[in-house]
Simulated scan of single mutants.
Amino acid sequence: MSEQYRTPPAEAVETDAPRPGPGTPRKLAAVLLGLTAVVVLMLCAFALPSVNGGPHEVPIGVTGPQAAAEGLRAKLDGPEWDVTVYEDTAALTTAIQEREVAGGLALGTGGIDVYTATAGAPTATGALTALGNAAADRQHVKATVHDLVPFPGDDPRGAGLAAAGLPLVFGGIFPAVLLTRLFPGHAHLRTRFAGVVLFSLLAGAAIAGCLQYGTGSLAGSYWLTALGLGLGMAALAMTFIGLEALAGFAGLGAGIAVMMLLGNPLSGLGSGPYWLPSGWSSLGQVLPPGASGSLLRSLAFFDGTGAAVPALTLAAWVALGLVLLLVADRRGGKTRHDGAAGAAEAETHAVTA
């Protein structure tokens, strides 16, 4: 039999097979510990806000006879409620509709009127209603609830709004990842920028249409709501592509991790911003998911009242992403220029030689 068809010895086969290196067990242990830490971090990020949830300095108003109103303010004002006394019921209801307070109590001899804005802070509304009922029971009168800003009749519990959190976050992640994969390199930075802008406009219009006309979860101006949703997704996607352009996959991964592990659970989209501890709530409103939720509530239920701060916050994130892109583009242009100069110099030396 010819040598080329002869079966190699078993020893040779075993020798040629790749073997684990000496650092493989340590590398595997590091990967497993890292994955475990990520899972625990995810659990803490999603569980701790829920476990520690409750009214935290919820701004509410009180009106009625001066002595009674001041007495109730002194009793309630503390870590759970931030109480303001209003001159009359009209002033209280105006403050609620202008988002100065989340709700309020109007004291009277015949009963207590509880004024709420469920669309602004659903969980705080429930706690305020329970507070009004308890105060009415102590006085042996009746509590009457008036919801000044309710959710639409087709979605009275606001389920559609609460469910929009993850789609909004993924609406920033997916275009950043896909555009980066399909149009890699510094030569396509402008293409990625244009893709993010166009996608945000299209996706904002589509999501607003589904929530407003499909599930009936939103009210207000459709086009303003669509622009607000698009701004929220642009803030995320622009930041992601900027991080990837400047720091590569590590920058993109870090940005996604922060928005998923902190931005989403701290957004307060389903509960309203008052149900988280004050520090966590403030952080959540600075990140794009929380700012998007606040902007969406303002545009969809309060005729734009209170929209300025979250809109400016999202615009700042868009600007940050754009700055990162410009820095990466300038760095890439400098690299290309240096490379071209080096090649020209080498060619000149070759010709001279």
Rank of each mutant, 00 (worst) to 15 (best):
F240G: 00
V309K: 08
L211P: 00
R26W: 10
P20F: 15
L296M: 15
L262N: 00
P79M: 10
H337V: 14
V114F: 03
T84I: 11
G214E: 08
V39E: 06
E70Q: 08
Y5F: 12
L201A: 15
T348A: 15
D338Q: 12
G120Y: 04
G332T: 04
V39F: 14
G78Q: 09
A159W: 05
G111E: 07
G61V: 11
L148M: 10
V258W: 02
V169Q: 00
G220M: 07
K142R: 12
D88I: 15
M233F: 05
Y115W: 10
A91G: 14
G103T: 05
G272L: 10
T215Q: 09
G110S: 14
Q66Y: 06
G61D: 05
L262A: 13
G304E: 09
G61S: 13
H188C: 09
G172F: 03
G160L: 10
T239I: 11
F193R: 04
S281Q: 05
E345S: 13
A45I: 08
I112D: 00
G71E: 03
V39Q: 05
L182V: 13
A67T: 07
L229Y: 01
G306N: 10
A69S: 07
T191P: 00
G279C: 08
L182I: 11
F170N: 03
T94M: 12
G339Q: 12
R26P: 00
Q212W: 02
P277D: 02
A203Q: 02
A106Q: 08
G108Y: 05
L211D: 01
D77Y: 01
V169E: 00
G220T: 11
S271M: 07
L312Q: 07
A67D: 05
W223Q: 03
A106E: 08
F301Y: 15
P9E: 12
A164T: 06
A29H: 04
L166A: 14
G332L: 04
G64K: 03
A17I: 10
H186V: 11
L168Q: 01
A121G: 10
G171K: 01
E347F: 14
R19G: 12
G34I: 14
G230D: 01
G110K: 11
R336L: 15
D77P: 03
L246A: 14
G279N: 02
P25L: 13
G255K: 02
S217P: 03
G209V: 02
T109E: 13
L296T: 09
L314Y: 07
A226M: 04
T24Q: 09
G332E: 02
A219W: 00
T180E: 06
P150H: 05
A17R: 14
V309R: 09
A257H: 04
V145Q: 05
P175L: 14
A47N: 04
L107N: 00
V39L: 15
L322E: 05
H188I: 06
D329Q: 11
P265I: 07
A291D: 03
G21C: 11
I256M: 13
T239S: 13
L231Y: 02
E57L: 15
I60C: 06
E244I: 08
L41G: 15
A102G: 01
R19Y: 03
K334H: 11
G54T: 09
T313W: 02
A12M: 13
V351C: 05
